[in-house]
């Protein structure tokens, strides 16, 4: 029963460990990676509904990042698969509603719906993949610092950091709670009734509020005055500028010009 929660827990920890590696990409200033990811996502989603060809070259970026940062592809793919249901749920209506044949491949006519569905899946893999790559090469704490340097309010970034810090503590606590519950419930296969669920949640909430009070105590005893301060020096240097300009430029170029069609017709022209 608790495999789902164990798995989620393990996954966060795993991304955390990936982010601790020391590769050229990991060493890059987080702002460069954050902004590059933003340009990437906007370029990808700005394509037309039926675009497929133009999206393919964008896989260049994940391939390069995975290579440079030595990330495990299978782990990332599994994470991608895990979150795909909602997009598939919405997208699967496209082939059903949009049946007009759009591309004729010999005897097989492919409807606009299938084309747009395929396009949707490509977008999904690219955008979600980009987010995963960002976290796996940067680490959550560092992303928060970058957000703050890009203008996010301190109150908010501190929230993010605290949430992240206590996520692990509280998930461990709820795992212990569920284990204790399942060891003493003999009736059903790990099912939790509404009443028991409320008791568990209520108790967890009370413990959490008490913990917040103890943390506040610990903060006060270290001269806390309401503001959390952090020293962190990042340097946005020549490497970062190259990374951002290089990839950003490439994405815009791929988006605005029909580079792929040019390349394709060149190849087709040669072979045919």
């Amino acid at each position: 029963m608790s495999t789902k929660i164990d798995r989620a827990f393990y996954d966060i920890g795993h991304l955390d460990i990936l982010a601790e590696a020391d590769t050229p990409l990991h060493r890059l200033d987080p702002r460069a990676k954050l902004l590059t990811t933003a340009v990437f996502v906007v370029c990808v989603v700005s394509f037309g509904k039926y675009e497929i060809a133009g999206l393919l070259p964008f896989f260049l970026y994940p391939a390069v990042v995975i290579g440079l940062a030595e990330l495990p592809l299978s782990f990332l793919l599994r994470k991608l698969l895990l979150v795909s249901p909602f997009v598939i749920f919405i997208g699967i209506f496209n082939p059903w509603l949009d049946r007009e044949v759009m591309v004729q491949l010999g005897p097989v006519g492919i409807s606009g719906g299938w084309v747009s569905f395929a396009s949707l899946l490509l977008r999904f893999s690219l955008t979600v993949g980009a987010a995963l790559l960002l976290i796996a090469t940067t680490g959550f704490g560092t992303i928060c610092m970058a957000l703050e340097q890009l203008g996010a309010p301190r109150v908010f970034t501190v929230q993010l950091l605290l949430l992240y810090r206590y996520l692990f503590v509280l998930i461990a606590e709820s795992i212990r709670m569920m284990r204790a519950q399942s060891l003493r419930s003999f009736n059903a296969k790990g099912r939790i009734s509404y009443r028991v669920f409320l008791q568990m949640l209520g108790n967890l909430l009370l413990r959490t509020i008490d913990r917040a009070q103890r943390i506040h105590m610990a903060m006060l005893s270290r001269a806390f005055t309401g503001e959390i301060r952090i020293v962190r020096q990042f340097s946005f240097g020549y490497k970062e500028a190259c990374f951002l300009a290089g990839f950003g430029g490439l994405f815009l170029c791929l988006r605005l010009t029909d580079l792929t069609a040019l390349l394709g017709s060149l190849v087709l022209g040669i072979t045919g």
Partner: peptide, 27 residues
Amino acid sequence: VGMVFQDPDDQLFMSTVFDDVAFGPLN
């Protein structure tokens, strides 16, 4: 008075060891 609490998870609330140890001096 430097106060060390019983549960280190309550005492260490920042996201890295460095930030945590720096918390007091920065304040």
